[in-house]
């Protein structure tokens, strides 16, 4: 198929960016979206132009690296699907596709479609863990975890840290990402001792990193490729209120 791509090109963090049009022909419907961009880049290199920079690694929906806003939607049109898992059979000959980077205050553009998401790492460093230094663990069976809790914790832990939730949020909030971690750890018995310090630390870092506040628009969950639900935000809010009241 033949497509028109309009892609955000920005040479560097401080440079001005703009949308640039490319026409690409002979795209196979079995190709993935990123493979389609590979083909474009091969052509740009052959023409002596600078290829389009974009983040990717696993190309199977688990590392969280890929991060494109496609026709205004983070990760594109297919529900519960990362950019790298999107395939061209979703498109048809003659389509025009807009491709942009995540746009959020806390995620500055590095180049073209690549952004800096290190603020997510800082949120984790501010409490998104259970302190269990190597060698100190009791036998794994010493603390049974009810299956329902384990399953719910797992569902929250499935977050891949991609940042689509932030890109989708009109406020650029990192709430869904943060709440997924708070829920994962808070649902397990091992996570209880640090439950309150964890949520206070993470929220403070989230706000300091320049993410916006949460106004319950729900756009985040709709964009999330791992279907993290809004319920985790409810749990974060409850934990936060309790922890703040205690700290006061």
């Amino acid at each position: 198929m033949k497509l028109r791509l309009r892609i955000w090109r920005q040479p560097g963090a401080d440079a001005k960016g703009k949308m640039v049009s490319y026409v690409i022909d002979g795209v196979s419907e079995d190709a993935s979206f990123l493979e389609m961009l590979d083909v474009l880049n091969e052509r740009l290199i052959a023409d002596g132009e600078d290829p389009v920079a974009f983040d990717h690694d696993c190309r199977e929906g688990i590392c969280g690296a890929c991060s494109l806003v496609i026709d205004g939607q983070p990760h594109g049109p297919q529900a519960a699907t990362t950019t790298c898992q999107l395939h061209m059979r979703k498109y048809k000959d003659g389509d025009t596709i807009d491709i942009e980077p995540w746009r959020a205050g806390a995620f500055p553009v590095v180049k073209d479609l690549v952004v800096d998401r290190s603020a997510f790492d800082r949120i984790i460093a501010a409490g998104g863990y259970i302190s269990a230094p190597t060698g100190t663990a009791p036998d794994a069976h010493s603390v049974p975890v009810p299956k329902a809790d384990a399953d719910a914790a797992f569902a929250a832990a499935a977050c891949i840290g991609c940042g689509a939730c932030v890109a989708a949020c009109p406020n650029g909030s990192g709430m869904l990402f943060m709440a997924a971690k708070v829920a994962h750890l808070g649902l397990m018995p091992q996570g209880q001792p640090e439950r309150h310090t964890r949520v206070l630390g993470m929220v403070a870092e989230h706000d300091a990193a320049g993410f916006g506040g949460c106004t319950n628009t729900g756009e985040c969950a709709a964009a999330c490729p791992k279907e993290i639900g809004l319920d985790v935000i409810g749990q974060l809010n409850r934990d936060f209120r309790k922890a703040a009241a205690r700290a006061a």
Binding site: A140, P144, A150, A153, F154, Q190
Partner: peptide
Amino acid sequence: EIIDQCVAQGVPFAREYGGLL
């Protein structure tokens, strides 16, 4: 020891109804 370590960190391994791994 690895399994013990990972469980202590909160790794959500699959569990059975009795709560064991």
